[in-house]
Amino acid sequence: MTRQTDAPRHVVATPGDADTVLRRLTRDGWVARDGFALPDPGWDVSSTRLVLHGRIGDADTLQLAVLAAARGAGIVAVCDAESPLGRALVDDLSRLGPVQHGAADPVPAGGNNVTDLVPEQRALLDRLAAGDTIAAAAAAEFLSLRTANRRIAEARALFGVRTTREAVLAYLRQRGSAPPPR
């Protein structure tokens, strides 16, 4: 079964970019459907490998797209990522996992791309780099310990490392910071 964080999330500028992404996703076994309303009454649709696509032109469509992503559907949204609506879309989708911008091939797992981290992951890694424990970092970010551990595990997978310490070091290298002194 596909995990919710495995569902693709793309925000692209043009319908042509959306077509490029959709062709790649359908080649990978995803089923594309126009619009962001989900026909399936069940909550978790991640096992259907459904990717919804369309233009985000108003707040209602934005809410439908984010809800579909939260339920496990893939999303390919045509929207100007620099507009207020686009920034809101990217922020909301980023809370669920990495968001790809444009039609370029996504960075594969282990692609070591710090920009693919969700804001919660960055905040947790910053706190861990400063010397906090995972429990303290979770509390400071108002996350449950379980969610914090899940976010850190996703970051380890993204960086292609086995330990949290290695993930923190990879994050600091990518961000351009030296590790804090001991």
Score class of each variant (00 low, 15 high):
Ala103Arg: 12
Leu145Trp: 10
Leu145Gln: 04
Gly131Gln: 04
Val66Ala: 01
Glu154Ile: 13
Leu25Phe: 01
Ala170Val: 07
Ala73Asn: 05
Gln4Thr: 15
Arg175Phe: 09
Arg33Thr: 11
Gly131Asp: 13
Val78Ile: 12
Leu89His: 03
Gln100Leu: 05
Ala7Arg: 06
Gly35Thr: 12
Gly131Ser: 02
Val99His: 06
Gln174Ser: 00
Thr61Pro: 04
Leu172His: 12
Leu89Gln: 00
Pro84Asp: 08
Ile56Ala: 07
Asp28Ser: 15
Asp92Ser: 05
Leu64His: 11
Thr147Ser: 02
Gly16Ile: 08
Phe142Glu: 13
Thr61Asp: 10
Ala65Phe: 09
Arg71Gly: 00
Asn113Ser: 11
Ala123Thr: 10
Thr115Phe: 01
His10Val: 11
Arg150Ser: 06
Thr133His: 02
Gly102Met: 01
Val90Asn: 03
Ala129Lys: 00
Tyr171Pro: 05
Val168Lys: 04
Arg49Asn: 00
Asp6Thr: 15
Val90Cys: 12
Arg24Met: 13
Gly54Trp: 08
Ala70Met: 14
Ser46Lys: 14
Gln63Cys: 10
Asp105Lys: 05
Ala13Arg: 11
Arg3Leu: 13
Val31Gly: 06
Asp19Pro: 08
Ala139Thr: 04
Pro84Tyr: 05
Thr48Asn: 03
Ala140Thr: 00
Ala137Cys: 03
Ala32Val: 13
Arg24Ser: 10
Thr163Glu: 13
Arg55Asn: 09
Arg3Lys: 14
Ala129Thr: 13
Val45Met: 01
Ala59Thr: 06
Val161Pro: 14
Asp116Trp: 12
Glu141Ser: 01
Leu158His: 06
Arg165Gly: 13
Arg71Ser: 00
Gly16Leu: 09
Thr5Asn: 06
Leu89Asn: 04
Ala103Leu: 12
Asp6Ala: 07
Ala104Ser: 12
Ala88His: 01
Ala81Cys: 03
Arg156Ile: 01
Val107Leu: 12
Pro98Asn: 08
